[in-house]
Each structure stands twice: as structure tokens, then as C-alpha cells.
Simulated scan of single mutants.
Amino acid sequence: MSETYMRREPLRIGFIGLGMMGLPMLENLASHDAFHILAFDTQNAPFDKLATHPAWGTTLTRATALDEFASVEMVITMLPNSVITNAVIAGDADRAGLAGVLAPDSIVIDMGSSNPGETQKLAELLASAGSTLVDAPVSGAVAKARSGTLTIMAGGPDAACERARPVLEKMGTNIIRTGKVASAHAMKALNNYVYAAGLLAASEALLIASRLDLDLTRFAEVLNASSGRNVATETKLNQFIIPGTFAGGFALRLQAKDIATAAALQSLTGIDAPQLNLCNSVWADAISALEPGADNTEIFRFLQQRNEATADS
């Protein structure tokens, strides 16, 4: 029987980071009365929405500073990158981080897409303070965050991952144990590279098909019924790229960060991956050319603009 159901008292959880993914994840978690949740974000907008949540003011409340997390048993961070995650967990000269605030035997679950090397350092820091880090990045974008059907990878000690599982299961339907701490962040980065490679190939093929005046919807049908099928052809072409809405729900800048993280693993492993370097370069160029809030599906628009510029020169 899981710890959540054996407990007589609700599990005290902290949740830090209420962005596009974090907010719906928290909303799902707060729908279960087995938890008392203290939520933190530097922005007020997420709390304006949370004010209408049935749990608001009872089992879901707002924290205004990190030192309020001294009373929790588990903290979830859902932050954009390792720089911010490091600041929250390790702290700085002006402010203590979670490592200096949490009670012994606490668990920190980093659900962002952090750098595996930085994750390992944070795990060692928390261990020295008597706490444990579980890295648990997610796959599935905003739609699955809202429905609570994310795939969640979990790396870390077995005991900590088992303690975290009942919590993770309220946000995702597929929990995959990946091994030691930082293994989940490494696998997430590599997964997002493989997705990006498929999206890049599909976008390039779509551009060529367009120049040939082919029926793009029919071309997507061919891809999805044939060996060219991948996640991008199944969930991005007809849904967002061909109609030109470019609203896939995953920011291009975040995808570029994940690809860069995967690319950095080459030096760690001694593996040369030319296609990974190509994707890293293309997404870095796209960040410079597109607006800051661009969706990841707009990699197609970037390729289109670049080809039009070449044709005009």
C-alpha cells in the first residue's frame, strides 16, 4: 500500500513554478485532498486563477518566501532552466535556498528540464543537508498537463522515487523509472532531440512538397500511414503547421534549451553526433530570427522564411 493511503495526515507539499506547465500540474495535484499544498511563484497571475480552485484557501495556499517551505515534506520545482532551479535550491549570498530551509528527510522533485550535470551537483548538495533529490521531467506538453496524463520520468534512489510516486501519479499516467539521479534529465533531453529531429525532417519535407504544389493534407496522410510517421507528423502537421496556427503548446526557446542540453552530452560521453549538432544549430538560429514567444512548430516558418530569403538574394 502506498504511503499516501497509509498516512493519517495529509502530505505537506510545496510547489514552485506556476508557468504554462506548472500551473495545470498544480491544479490537478490540488484536486486531491490527500495533500496540503503550499504554492510559490514570483508572478501574481497564476494565483488570480488559483483563487477559483475548490481547494484554494483550505488545502491549497500561497507561500510568499522560500523559508515557508520548512514545514513541508516534499517540494516540486517546475522551473524553466538549471540557472533558476539552482538559485531556488542552492540559494545565493542574499537568500537561503531550499537546501538550507528544508527539514531532514525531505524530498525535492525537480520536474523541469534541467541540465543533468547540474542536477547531480544539486543532489549532492541536498544529500549533505539530509534531503534527497528526484529528477522527474515530463513529456506531453500543456494539453496533457491539463488532463493529468503526462509521461513522467523519475531518476533517483529507489526509496525516494517510491515516496514520490503517489504524488507523480496525480499529474501523469505513465511513470517511468530511469535509474540513478540525473538519468531522467538526460533521457528527457535526448528524447526532445529525437522529437526535434523528426519535426525538422517533417518541416523540410513539407516545404519541398509545397513547392511541388502537392496536397499537403494528403501528404501528411501518406506520412502517417507509411515509414515516415513520427510524433511530429502525427500531432503537428495537420493540427498546427499546415493550417498555420503554430500553437502546439511548447515554446521553441524551451525546445532549443533541451536540444542544447542534449548536445552538451557529447563532450561528456565522447560521442560525436552530427545530426544533433545540426538540430542545435538550426534551433539556435531560429531563436534569433523569431519572436521570443514562438511555438516549437514555428521551426517550419523559420525554414520557410530562410528559403524565401535565399531565393530573393
Rank of each mutant, 00 (worst) to 15 (best):
P10E: 07
W56L: 14
N307I: 07
D158E: 10
A263D: 10
F69C: 02
A225T: 02
E73N: 15
A273F: 10
D41A: 06
E298W: 08
A70Y: 08
T217G: 09
A202F: 07
S227R: 13
A232Q: 05
M25T: 01
I299C: 01
A251V: 15
E169C: 12
V88N: 04
C161T: 07
W56Q: 03
Y195Q: 11
K144V: 04
W56N: 03
P137V: 00
H32M: 15
S226W: 15
D312W: 15
A160H: 02
D158L: 03
A154Q: 03
G228S: 01
G179A: 03
E169W: 04
I242V: 09
N296Y: 14
G100M: 08
L278I: 12
R229C: 09
G22W: 02
I259R: 00
G179N: 04
P157S: 10
V101R: 08
Q275V: 12
A65V: 14
L212S: 07
S210G: 09
H185E: 12
N86S: 14
K170E: 10
L98D: 01
L29F: 08
I84G: 08
L190T: 08
L11D: 03
R12L: 14
L23G: 06
T42Q: 12
A164Y: 05
D135N: 06
E73M: 00
M21C: 01
A70R: 09
